[in-house]
Design a protein around this nucleic acid. Structure first.
Length: 735
DNA sequence: ATAGGGTTAG
């Protein structure tokens, strides 16, 4: 009796008077803000002091005092599980509440497997779990956690008769969704009473997580008939409908809020901005943004995304500049805006600004930067980004890996791309597709097809992009029969209906093999209208196989679709030149002059010593221009010694032969090569990215230079790579 | 005494 009173006193002093429960719970946050390494040490120490005082004085604590200590130690983010365990182990017969609390505590740590260990111990000690036990236990399960644990726990839930408890069901649905077993989640959901909004919300959130947005929308419609949605429901359904670009859903939900049926909040408003932005209604998004009394970084970022979607990158930039605080997501959204509008140099500039602002990039940022490097052919910078990624301990996940594979290929480094692929712990269909497309465009058709066979072997399902890679592998390596059979099997074996790009690949394939009539028949039999790319492919084939008649027909079709298409005129000129039809060439040139047709200026990029250098034909704007032209003269001398004669047949302009030769000698890729030779050591591979097709003369010169200077040259043009080594090219002179 | 679901970007 006396003893009991003392215990009460201790409890009273420790919690209610000396250290009121409020302060015990609020203190950790304050410490956290100050950045203390051990957020809760002070209050936890106080608790421990009281505990040790009690032990010193020989005062026994009652169960409720132990419970307080243990629940405090098990509190989220501030706990000390070792201490909790220490106290817990001194209790002879812990009740189910204490077991639950310990399980909850471990579930929140990074060692949730201890929760399972404890649960098993609890059963060994003949304590029956109650309806609180399983939600706590399941909370510790996450994506990385073995699925068997989820299944085993489910069996226990049934055995102990909690499978009809809605809280338990919610936890089960959540865990099954996290581990990707959406069907199992649905099974539990279907057996549930579904009396609570949370049950519906959990299921909808699961569908969202799996990208099954249709299902989310369907479930919401069903829910509206049977249960009252909450603001969380609306956020979830907006998120799904944003992906589906369902403007009606946006308006419907918006109406629910405006009718006052559901109270709005910051998150919900953000979700509304996002969906209107995704549906191209950036002005409505702006209206919501303006009407909000408080906004966070997500509100701003969602609005900026809206302007980027609408193609108004500069307006997005203006809002971006106004942001009171920017996080890595906002920076990445803005960077992506430049990426999507092909402003790759702006991508790199913004990335530097981001670093100057001391915002750490995350893996999303890294993917964007690597993609920009890929477009610019900036291998050095890409490599630096990769090292930087390691340094910042950014998880090199499957997306980063895929981006790197693509970058290495787009920089012409087949070996590094291949090494990256083999080093990846996990691969998805995008990794395989990147390999197939990359090998194909780099002239390794056979290897690309081997890759494809391996992909099917590991049961990865190819998609339409994979087949573009497969077909272009056949094209680049002249494998006509293989190409024909892949074109059929893509439909019969994988149910992929060929689109206009696949037909384009086939025209390319047949055209390259000289089967111009068959290619033309292929176009005529297409189920869709041929576009300029299709006619362009045929026209290009006519140039190589010198078929004037077919070329004129293809050019006529092309120009009907796009009268101002300069490339079509250029190609036809090239055909006339190749066939020595000088009268036709002269006539066509005067037509071009009359109509004022403009040819896209050729432009070559080269990355050298940390910068990307850009050249156009006859460029004198480079700071080292004088040296470059001196190098060019030296190159020309060496070429002449090797028996080189300029090939001016593809010169577009009507000028004298001497001037044509001069024009050809100053093509952008030649300037870039000159710059590359004079600013790099003898073993450095020269990589150039060209926006158009290489002209015949430049191609010939590059081959000669690769042997004269004993240098590897890699030129990426619009559609393929040219690896120049010891006087020959990987494209085998078909391009 | 103890439970559950949410927004921005590849």
């Amino acid at each position: 009796m006396h003893n009991r009173a003392v215990k009460k006193t201790i409890y009273f002093i420790s919690v209610s008077t000396a250290y009121p429960i409020r302060s015990l719970h609020t203190a950790p946050a304050a410490h956290q803000n100050l950045g203390y390494p051990f957020q809760n040490s002070k209050t936890l120490d106080q608790l421990k002091q009281i505990h040790s005082l009690a032990i010193q004085k020989g005062l026994a604590l009652d169960v409720s005092a132990y419970s307080k200590i243990i629940s405090f130690c098990c509190a989220k983010d501030a706990g000390d599980m070792d201490y909790a365990r220490h106290v817990f182990d001194t209790i002879l017969e812990p009740n189910v509440f204490l077991w639950n609390t310990m399980i909850k505590g471990y579930s929140q740590t990074c060692y949730p497997e201890y929760a399972i260990v404890l649960y098993k111990k609890m059963l060994e000690r003949n304590v029956k779990p109650d309806n609180y036990t399983f939600p706590f236990l399941l909370k510790g399960f996450n994506r990385d956690f073995p699925l068997e644990c989820g299944k085993g726990t489910h069996a226990h839930i049934c055995k102990f008769g909690f499978d009809s408890n809605e809280f338990v069901q919610q936890s089960l649905i959540h865990v099954y969704c996290l581990s990707g077993q959406i069907d199992m989640a649905r099974l539990v959901f279907d057996t549930s009473k579904k009396s609570e909004a949370v049950t519906w919300n959990t299921m909808i959130s699961g569908y969202n997580r799996m990208g099954q947005f249709e299902e989310s929308r369907k479930l919401f419609k069903e829910m509206e008939k049977r249960a009252l949605p909450t603001s969380v429901t609306l956020v979830l359904v907006l998120s799904a409908c944003s992906e589906l670009k369902d403007l009606d859903a946006a308006k419907h939900v918006h109406q629910c809020i405006q009718d006052g049926r559901i109270e709005s909040n910051l998150t919900l408003n953000n979700a509304l901005i996002d969906i209107y932005a995704a549906c191209g209604q950036v002005n409505v998004a702006l209206g919501i943004f303006i009407s909000m009394n408080n906004r966070d970084v997500i509100s701003w970022t969602a609005l900026i995304k809206g302007y980027i979607n609408a193609g108004q990158v500069d307006k997005a930039q203006r809002y971006f500049d106004l942001m009171p605080r920017k996080d890595s997501v906002s920076w990445t959204a803005m960077i992506d805006g430049y990426l999507k509008t092909n402003r790759f140099k702006d991508v790199l500039l913004l990335f530097r600004e981001m670093q100057a602002a001391n915002v750490e990039p995350d893996k999303f940022t890294i993917v964007s930067i690597i993609t920009a490097c890929a477009h610019l052919g900036a291998l050095e910078l890409g490599e630096w980004v990769r090292t930087y990624t390691d340094k910042l301990n950014i998880d090199c996940d499957i997306h980063v890996g895929n981006a790197l594979i693509d970058m290495y290929f787009k920089c012409g480094d087949v070996e590094k791309a291949t090494r990256m692929f083999h080093r990846m712990p996990q691969r998805d269909k995008f990794s395989w597709t990147a390999m197939i497309v990359g090998l194909a465009t780099n002239g390794r058709g056979r290897e690309a097809l081997n890759m494809f066979a391996k992909m099917l072997n590991v049961s990865e399902t190819p998609d339409e992009i994979t087949y573009i890679g497969v077909l272009s592998a056949c094209t680049h390596s002249g494998l006509v029969n293989e190409g024909r059979s892949f074109f059929i099997s893509m439909t019969t074996q994988h149910g992929i209906v060929p689109n206009v790009v696949h037909y384009g690949c086939m025209v390319d394939l047949l055209g390259r093999a000289g089967l111009l009539k068959e290619a033309h028949k292929f176009i005529k039999d297409m189920p869709m209208k041929a576009n300029t790319i299709i006619w362009g492919a045929l026209l290009a084939a006519c140039r190589v196989h010198k078929d004037v008649e077919m070329a004129e027909m293809a050019a006529k079709q092309l120009l009907q679709l796009e009268p101002e298409n300069g490339a079509a005129y250029v190609l036809l000129c090239n055909v006339y030149a190749a066939c020595k039809k000088w009268d036709n060439l002269r006539e066509l040139r005067s037509v071009i002059m009359e109509r004022g047709i403009k040819k896209t200026p050729g432009c070559s990029l080269i990355e050298m010593n940390g910068g990307v250098h850009e050249f156009v034909a006859g460029d004198t704007s480079h700071p080292q221009s004088q040296e470059i032209y001196l190098k060019l003269e030296e190159m020309t001398e060496n070429l002449k010694l090797a028996g080189y004669l300029p090939d001016t047949s593809e010169v577009f302009l009507d000028i004298s032969e001497k001037e044509k030769e001069k024009a050809v000698s100053r093509h952008s890729e030649k300037l870039a090569i000159a710059f590359g030779l004079l600013s790099s050591g003898p073993d450095v591979v020269i990589r150039i990215v060209k926006n158009l097709r290489m002209c015949t003369d430049c191609h010939h010169v590059a081959k000669l230079l690769s042997s004269i200077y004993e240098r590897e040259l890699i030129v990426r043009d619009r559609t393929r790579f040219h690896h120049f080594r010891q006087g020959s090219c990987s494209c085998k002179d078909y391009w």
